[in-house]
Design a protein around this nucleic acid. Structure first.
Lengths: 220, 220
DNA sequence: AAATATATTTAGCTATATCTAAATTAATTT
DNA sequence: AAATTAATTTAGATATAGCTAAATATATTT
């Protein structure tokens, strides 16, 4: 069975919102995420239920099925592999890749995915630090904490961001807080939760809590 | 203005069937090429007319406009660049690329096309020997003849094929008549038009007229 | 427990892209 | 020039994906 691009996008949203099937998701949540209306979501849920990628009981809620998880992970895998390709091979900035990867992820060709993966040397993480599921859907997540939860003097490496809007990514690029940067918390202001950070042992940086809670760090 | 994938496909078909706007094309020709019905084509022609990529007078015929040519060439450019990518970077065989390129050509991102072009080192021809239009739509075609039109003792290089069905391409691969192969006509049988060919100065090959008239050669 | 508020679904509409069958126009025969 | 044939278009369906407005079910107050 094949899914349309729209169905793939809904399923991906459901997968993310439910945190991989753990949490429950409401029709309204999906509508907000997909920037559409609840009525349209209801229609789509019925269809996804018929295709058995979710289990759907109206007014009750939904549950992503094993089959649905495989489809979602396959789409996520393709999205992230293309992001690696765009950044590493075509020199895209990491804040320019999302929109294009959003289109490329819907290309249907198992051979293409397999060859792209090999060409990129089987990457485990995308340019935002998010893990790339392997062909069986297995994910090796790195344990990571939000930057704002770290204490003074603790160190680590930026491995991912929560907000991947172009505006946020541009800001990070500007201040030099890229994925892979080694950081140390120099000071923490109790009043507003803002931080003073040392980046790559040379540059100090002041950061609001709004920013720091969107940065994920692998502690060391 | 943006075209849908379907509109892009129709326009590409019209461009090819009209030989770049030179010949006239009928509704039925388009229907055959697009594997659809004449009624659907009529609908689409009206729409393409409204978008001013063709000039359409019903029952009379159509004419591709300058704007339409630009759109068609842009799609052809993307298709052929992706084919180069698939063959050169992802090790696809030249008979495996078409279907995937058919999907990839509809990705909308001027930056992507520009970067891909640079990454591939501004190729002028695709793996089947067809010219790749530049970003302004300019094409540098190579003068070429059908293999069956060559005389005994003439030499040249295979630069393109007319029939690019998977079956034909597989056959060529098997007998070693790849794009770029240097050939010499050793003998020509008047009776059935079949040929004896020397490939790369070592391998001789017998070839029916049906095959040879689908192979294009740059004479030397 | 009834009333109110919120969430969700259904009904009915729009637009795209397809189809078949009928109608119309153009081209060809006789 | 009339009749026939072929090509093309229109009319009226279907399916997807979206919308608004109305209806219905669930949740929360009072």
């Amino acid at each position: 069975m094949e899914l349309t691009s729209t169905e793939e996008n809904y399923l991906k949203a459901i997968y993310h919102l439910s945190d991989g099937g753990k949490k429950s998701v409401s029709t309204n949540d999906i509508a907000a995420e997909m920037k559409t209306k609840a009525a349209s979501v209801s229609d789509m849920l019925r269809k996804l239920g018929e295709k058995e990628v979710i289990e759907y009981r109206k007014y009750y809620g939904l549950q992503i099925t094993e089959s649905g998880k495989r489809f979602a992970l396959q789409t996520i895998r393709k999205h992230r592999l293309w992001e690696v390709f765009l950044v590493e091979k075509l020199n895209f900035a990491w804040d320019e890749v999302h929109e294009v990867a959003e289109q490329l992820e819907h290309i249907h060709s198992p051979l293409l995915v397999q060859r792209l993966d090999a060409y990129l040397n089987y990457p485990k993480f995308d340019p935002h630090g998010d893990p790339i599921p392997d062909e069986f859907g297995d994910v090796r997540a790195r344990p990571r904490v939000q930057l704002n939860e770290m204490d003074v003097d603790q160190t680590g490496q930026i491995v991912a961001v929560k907000d991947s809007s172009a505006a946020f990514l541009r800001y990070l690029d500007k201040v030099g807080a890229y994925i892979g940067a080694r950081i140390k918390v120099l000071d923490k202001v109790e009043f507003d939760g803002s931080l003073e950070i040392l980046v790559d042992q040379k540059k100090t940086l002041f950061m609001s809590k709004d920013v720091s809670c969107n940065i994920l760090v692998l502690q060391s």
